[in-house]
Design a protein around this nucleic acid. Structure first.
Lengths: 226, 226
DNA sequence: CAGTGTGAAGTTGTTCACAGCA
DNA sequence: TGCTGTGAACAACTTCACACTG
């Protein structure tokens, strides 16, 4: 897998690209579920989503999803296998730092709970927000982060502060003992190599859209997902 | 560039990966700006952000940023070059469909204006939202989308509706004549191959974080950005 | 030296081609 | 015939190695 230097462990290594595509297959298949059809083929999925059908078969094979020759894949079976692979049954807890519009959106996001992650506490520096509850999640002073972490260690620290504050929040999180950080700010963050980091950078997406708008007039886009 | 089948045009092709990293360099460098130092080296950036320094030099070279041997890159110069490359001076207009928490967060996001994109109108089906203004942006009935597009064609359609409504919104957008769509829903969308699509899929990121949490205990993460 | 810049090598990811099958 | 599954070919991306420079 990209990004990872393996340490000889024998666990199966699945590529990051495949893992990013898996949830998209899931949601697509859910939209096809409980229609009249029971099976769906890789070429149909690929055609609709502009993804090469071999890619889909390989991705499915990676997580041991098997199809029937000529018939395709059983939709319910694939959904079940994917949800298992994604660990919907494994419940992770998270803190979120920065309760602005985006932080609030994430706290209110229904999907997280079913996907096996739950934001249990929020943190901010704004005195007007501290003490409030959003969707049942209480907001605390950022200075108490470490105390809360010691009280209830969590798996993921979510960063939704403005980019100029991201690094100091990261430093506090690491100091507190967090080992996986999910950064929604536009600032790439600095952390020791044993910390899991995932950047969801809106500006990267915007950069790509603007570049495509400027540069490609008569082109054709393949392989849409990533 | 991945995702694109070129049509013989001689315009320089820059990889999508490079384009996604460029904004991150920009924000990182802005955080170093107007400190005492004037120059910064690729190894320093790479070390701090866990990115290979050759990668940085190649990315910079792609957009004609030149460094000084032994001294590094002039921070102000790199910032200027990147902002030019990203088209901060080219103003794009956007409509956003789905004015929930996430849509509101994007409408309020200050960064967009300086980055050269402006959300000028919002759309929703919720009668309680229609007619409201958020940060100066008026919210209209989704059924009037095409009329508004004809009145003021825009460059980008942003989709921030729940995933089960994403595809029908896409269909309306394409019917209206939009050619670039930015999808924040978790549903991968289906569109003709001449439409520019960018998915910012939170669930893909979540999937990767959860997978790393489960699978890798003593590993080391390299190449952090993407 | 300790940097940049870059060709070459290595690695990862995608697509092709086709065997096997119902 | 039209699918799945997979090895092989191909393409993209990253890292290495090193010539060059002040």
């Amino acid at each position: 897998m990209r990004n990872i230097t393996d340490s000889k462990g024998k666990k199966k290594v699945i590529s990051a690209h495949t893992i990013r595509r898996i949830p998209m297959y899931l949601f697509y298949l859910k939209s096809k579920q409980s229609k009249e059809v029971e099976f769906i083929t890789a070429p149909i999925i690929g055609n609709e989503l502009n993804v090469d059908s071999t890619q889909i078969r390989k991705d499915f094979a990676e997580i041991s999803i098997k199809g029937k020759t000529k018939v395709g894949y059983n939709i319910d079976d694939v959904i079940e296998k994917i949800e298992w692979f994604l660990g919907y049954h494994i419940h992770r807890k998270a803190f979120i730092v920065g309760v602005g519009n985006l932080g609030t959106a994430l706290i209110n996001f229904k999907g997280f709970y079913t996907e096996g992650i739950e934001i249990i506490k929020g943190f901010d520096i704004d005195i007007k927000k501290i003490g409030n509850k959003i969707n049942g999640v209480e907001i605390y002073d950022i200075s108490t982060l470490q105390d809360h972490f010691i009280l209830t260690p969590i798996d993921v620290g979510i960063i939704t502060v403005p980019s100029d504050q991201a690094q100091q929040v990261v430093d506090i999180m690491i100091e507190s003992g967090m080992t996986a950080l999910w950064n929604f700010s536009t600032m790439p963050i600095s952390a020791p190599t044993n910390i899991i980091i995932e950047n969801t950078c809106i500006d990267s997406s915007l950069a790509l859209i603007k570049w495509k708008l400027q540069n490609e007039t008569p082109l054709i886009y393949k392989n849409r997902m990533l």
